[in-house]
Simulated scan of single mutants.
Amino acid sequence: MKIKQLHIQNYKSLVDFKLENLPAFAAVVGPNASGKSNIFEALEFTNYVCRFPFEATSFFGGLKNIYSYQATPGKKMSFYYKFDNDININFSLGITPQRNLDGFEDVYSIGQEPILDLGKEENPFLFLDIRDKNKRDNFLEVVRQKHLTYNNEFEIFIDNFSRLLVGKTFLNRSFQLQSRLHTNASNLSQILAQILDSEKKDDFFEWLRILIPEFRDIEIRKSNIDGSSEFFLYEMTSTRPFSRHLISDGTFNILSLMAAVFQNENPQFLCIEEPEYGLHPQAIELLVNFLREKSEEKGHHILLNTHSQTLVRCLEPHEIILVNKVNGATIAKQLTADNAVNIKTDEAWLSNAFGGGVL
Score class of each variant (00 low, 15 high):
68 S>F: 04
40 F>K: 05
355 G>R: 07
197 D>N: 15
252 F>E: 15
261 V>I: 02
220 I>L: 08
147 H>D: 05
95 I>P: 00
53 P>F: 04
249 D>W: 01
259 A>F: 13
90 N>V: 06
111 G>R: 07
304 L>M: 00
117 D>K: 15
273 E>G: 05
245 H>W: 12
313 R>G: 09
351 S>E: 14
302 I>V: 11
138 N>S: 10
136 R>E: 09
344 K>G: 09
197 D>I: 02
117 D>T: 07
119 G>M: 01
129 D>R: 09
296 E>K: 09
182 H>Y: 14
278 G>N: 10
229 S>F: 13
291 L>D: 10
215 F>R: 11
45 F>R: 07
179 S>P: 13
297 E>I: 14
231 F>I: 06
151 N>K: 07
151 N>V: 00
47 N>E: 07
35 G>T: 07
63 L>D: 10
236 M>S: 14
180 R>P: 02
350 L>E: 14
140 L>D: 03
349 W>H: 08
112 Q>K: 02
17 F>I: 04
116 L>G: 12
68 S>H: 11
354 F>T: 00
117 D>W: 11
246 L>F: 12
44 E>D: 08
174 S>C: 07
76 K>S: 13
24 A>P: 12
22 L>T: 00
300 H>S: 02
104 F>C: 11
10 N>L: 11
163 R>M: 12
251 T>A: 05
63 L>G: 09
72 T>N: 04
60 F>V: 04
28 V>T: 07
103 G>C: 07
72 T>S: 04
190 Q>E: 14
248 S>I: 01
90 N>A: 15
184 N>E: 04
187 N>V: 00
341 V>Q: 08
206 E>W: 06
320 I>Y: 09
225 I>F: 15
355 G>I: 13
342 N>S: 15
122 E>H: 10
218 I>E: 12
326 V>T: 13
206 E>P: 09
44 E>A: 15
1 M>P: 02
325 K>Q: 15
255 L>I: 08
209 R>N: 03
357 G>Y: 01
143 V>N: 10
314 C>N: 06
54 F>D: 13
213 P>T: 08
283 A>P: 00
306 T>P: 03
330 T>Q: 03
13 S>C: 05
163 R>A: 15
87 I>S: 07
349 W>G: 05
52 F>G: 11
359 L>F: 15
318 H>P: 04
223 S>C: 08
25 F>Y: 12
250 G>C: 06
236 M>W: 09
341 V>C: 09
78 S>G: 05
274 E>W: 01
305 N>F: 05
339 N>D: 13
335 L>W: 01
341 V>K: 14
117 D>E: 12
88 N>Q: 14
237 T>C: 13
111 G>N: 07
94 G>N: 03
14 L>G: 02
275 P>Q: 03
318 H>V: 03
235 E>N: 14
161 F>K: 02
95 I>C: 10
49 V>H: 00
279 L>C: 09
43 L>K: 11
6 L>E: 08
157 F>M: 11
230 E>H: 14
299 G>R: 08
319 E>W: 01
82 K>F: 09
